[in-house]
Nucleic acid binder design. Structure first.
Lengths: 143, 143
DNA sequence: TTTAGGAGTTAGACAGATTCCAATTATTAA
DNA sequence: TTAATAATTGGAATCTGTCTAACTCCTAAA
């Protein structure tokens, strides 16, 4: 099941489909992620969820994000040593990371592909291949 | 200049070549990294450097690693949200990361290649492309 | 309706990595 | 030497994330 719409009804269905009981807080957190479709840090999600009036604790945000990640609803993006970003898009794709603004942009899976997967040590399996294209503003003067 | 040998004389030359004055602490830290040729965390480096008798502070280890990274002597490896690893190998190559043991292994640049670099937003330049192959022990029973 | 139990949430303490700061010490150039 | 500058230091501070024990909220059975 893919998250396309993000009205209350669809979000409930999405959580149920992943065996997650749809509590008020979880729906808020799911909404924060899926309505924006952006890569957000736990911190930002906490802020968004409590924008109008505080209703969700830090612990619940972390618990919920870990739960969503374990159930395959979202994906972690490890690009910044200071914090984890969460990606509501679990389809195969890669990331463009602006090292100055900390913005993350998706790269289509078809655009960027790897060739020549290395031989793994015996008894090992691949858990995933992450590609991060790090970019920054060009400092050369335009002439 | 590449770091091949790691006797005192070569390390001094290496630092000098990167415009870094070779202090006692910096040489110790460089030695910890280059003599092992491994991917180490700041924590591990601090431990190695002070193995015999404490002579370098935590602050200096962090300062020095950031300096080495800025001057292109070493490279940061962002694979674990909990800490940064430092890679004394700055030649183009990729990484295999064991998500269970947190071990990092190099993948030769020739082995794994990306095709189809995405078009960057105007005014942006690529700072680097990181590929991380995440692996773990196979849980299927061998029969 | 009560009630009991489990699931979920909470505040705040805690842990680990990294940075900051102000004082001290080493290095360097003249 | 010496003065100026660069580097180092311990400890406080910060920040992300986890843990814990108490509390709340359902839900299903009586």
């Amino acid at each position: 099941m893919k998250a396309t719409s993000c009205d209350r009804r669809s979000l409930i269905a999405l959580l149920r489909h992943h065996d997650i009981s749809p509590t008020h807080q979880r729906l808020e957190i799911a909404h924060a992620l899926f309505s924006r479709g952006m890569h957000l840090s736990a911190d930002k999600i906490l802020a968004y969820v409590n924008e109008r009036h505080a209703e969700t604790s830090k612990a619940t945000v972390y618990n919920t994000l870990n739960l969503f990640r374990d159930r395959g609803l979202i994906r972690e993006v490890i690009v910044d040593p200071r914090r984890v970003f969460y990606d509501p898009n679990t389809q195969p794709h890669q990331h463009l990371y602006n090292i100055e603004t900390c913005e993350i942009t998706d790269i289509d899976a078809q655009t960027l592909t790897v060739t020549g997967m290395p031989e793994l040590p015996p008894g090992m399996v691949t858990d995933g291949v992450d590609i991060i294209v790090r970019v920054r503003a060009d400092t050369r003067p335009l002439r």
